[in-house]
Each structure stands twice: as structure tokens, then as C-alpha cells.
Write a protein that binds this DNA or RNA. Structure first.
Lengths: 171, 171
DNA sequence: GTTAGTGCAAACCTTTTGCAGCTCT
DNA sequence: AGAGCTGCAAAAGGTTTGCACTAAC
């Protein structure tokens, strides 16, 4: 369980491991998907109805600044919120289908290669690297072909995710 | 001038070329830096004090959906706003110094390579790809070394950009 | 003359802040 | 005990929306 490592890392730096943080850490680590602050809050609320949304934001900020979680945008998949994942796995790119919203992860050497080249090219010290790719997954390509069948396929609406809900109300 | 191409592209699709849009297009194309909506608005206001902030947002949305400009986050350099650039140049990564805020652009084959690999690996149709890299530029590395000189260099505060202003007030 | 686009005000979503009270160590 | 956290309320920052008026074609 990755959250163990994170807990240790926090303790070492004199950061308190509160009940709320335990809940949030566990959720971020186990959910298996990319959570945004609001989803995380909703999940956390089930385990502790008193836990406040502000605490979620503060915890995420803490983890982010400590370099324990990475913050993603996922091509603004569902609005302008951010998504989070634990920073344990190898560097990877996020591949987002603009139609169905599915997110794939791509590992592979071009990423390392890119990082190295940037470091040597600029004498830059890379701390975070984020690659996000938007387009259509194999499945949605065929679906789209069927839908628009003969309908003149002018410029594909690049940022116009079709079935993805934006700005879903919170209330 | 790149904005010519954009203007043509809009006309073809029956989109009106208003005075406001001309101003904004010209600015995005010529500023030479990555503008966010607010900066663009401030610049546009000098040319037409009546031009409204809302029009800036609506124009950016239009251009983005038409695939004529790309939207960037630049590692949330100065807050949570977005930055824009015309979509003409070859694909490139943005390399952002978290200390001084300088943004470099990296062209080069690892990017193309990455894109191709993702396409073939997932059978994915890539429309937009965005790579943003945060860290310290050569100059700031030496400055930091001097500052923290012997000061135990624990975890570098990854997302804690030091001298970069966040949430600059608009009013 | 139509229809798309603008400005204004007000809403909206996401995130942050101030402060009093609570709780880890 | 005391610094560190939390919850609550309120604000901020960034962006969108409804609607009447204006301007591009």
C-alpha cells in the first residue's frame, strides 16, 4: 500500500497524521482513478461526514508541495478542476479520450528520453514533467465515423469534448 | 503574420470578423509571450477601452474550439488561469522555471516520437498533445545553491514556486 | 434584414483565507 | 502545554451565462 510510504514521509517532517489525513491518503491511494478535490471530498464524507471540503484542499496542497502527489489537468476533461495521483509510479503520460473521457497511462522510454534531452539542452533541472494527450480512443473513432458517416468532416472540434459533462453542479 | 491564416480560417466557417476579434487576434499573435485571458484583456483595453472581458473569454473559447489556439497551464505558474498561443508552430514542450517564471520552448524529435508511440500503442487518434516541465533553469540553480548554501537541502519544495506571484489581484 | 456577436450584470465553480476552537504528540 | 489542524463562514480568482442592444454580412 503506497499510503504507508507517504505516511512515513510526513511523520519524518513533523507533519501530523490526523484522522482526516488518514482518510484522504487512503482514498487517494486506493481509488484507482484520478480524483479531483470534489470527488475526493464526496468519498471522504462517507467515511467521516464531518470532514470539511476545506480540509481536502489543504491536504491536497500539502501533499502536492511535499511532492507526494502529482496534480493533473487531464485536458480539462470535466471542467477546470485538478486531478491528483500518488507520485510513486514511473513517469507516465496521460492519454485522454475527448469523447468518452477514458484516461489511459502511457509509460515508455520516449518520456525519459525527452526529460534527459530537456535537461541537457537547457541545463535545466527537471522536478516535474507532465504530458497530457487528447484525442479519440480506438473505440470512439469507430463510433464517430458511424455517427458523422457522410457528414462532411471539416475541422474536428478539437476541444469540444462531446459527451463529457462540464461544470457539473455540486449542489 | 499568422493571424492572417486564422482570419481566413474563421471566414470560411461563416464566423464574423468583428473589430474586437481583430484586436484580440492581432495581440495573441504578436505579443510573443504566453498571454492569459486577463493580460490579453488589459492589452486589448488599450486599443479599445470599451472591449469587455467577457468578449475576451468568448473569443478565446471560440479559437480554442476551432483548434486555432492552444491552451496551456504552464504548471500553474501564476495561479490557475490558462495561457494561450497560436497553434502554428511545430509541436513543442514548455519548460517552466519555478523560481523565475521563465518559459522556454523545446522542439525536438522525442516529442514526435512520443506521439507516434502513443498512437500506435493504443490505436489512439491524437489531436492535442501538451508537455509541460517544471524545475529550475540553469541560472536559478546557481542562485539557489548560493542561497541555501549549507542550509540542509531536504526535499526541495516541488510545487512551491518561490518568487512567483500567485493570485495577483485584478482590481 | 438577419443572425451572430457584444456589453453589462449577475451567476457560477473552484479554491483560498481568517479566525476560534479542537487535537495530536 | 503548545504548535498544528480543523471547521465554519466568507471571500477571492477565474470563467460562464442571460438578456437586451448592436453591428457584420
Amino acid at each position: 500500500m503506497a499510503s504507508q510510504g507517504i505516511k512515513g514521509s510526513l511523520k519524518e517532517r513533523g507533519i501530523r497524521l490526523t484522522r482526516q489525513r488518514e482518510i484522504l491518503l487512503e482514498l487517494i491511494d486506493q481509488s484507482g482513478r484520478h480524483l479531483d478535490a470534489e470527488s475526493l471530498y464526496q468519498l471522504a464524507r462517507k467515511k467521516d461526514p464531518k470532514l470539511n471540503r476545506v480540509t481536502v484542499y489543504r491536504t491536497l496542497k500539502l501533499l502536492k508541495q511535499s511532492g507526494l502527489v502529482d496534480e493533473l489537468d487531464l485536458m480539462h476533461l470535466g471542467g477546470d478542476q485538478h486531478y491528483y495521483e500518488t507520485r510513486l509510479k514511473q513517469e507516465h503520460a496521460h492519454v485522454i479520450c475527448l469523447r468518452c473521457g477514458r484516461v489511459e497511462e502511457f509509460f515508455g522510454e520516449p518520456l525519459q528520453r525527452l526529460r534527459r534531452q530537456i535537461e541537457s539542452h537547457f541545463g535545466f533541472n527537471v522536478l516535474i514533467a507532465r504530458t497530457e494527450v487528447g484525442g479519440y480512443c480506438a473505440h470512439c473513432q469507430t463510433l464517430r465515423a458511424r455517427e458523422h458517416s457522410a457528414a462532411a468532416d471539416l475541422e474536428p472540434a478539437i476541444a469540444g469534448s462531446e459527451h463529457i459533462r462540464k461544470r457539473a453542479s455540486r449542489k
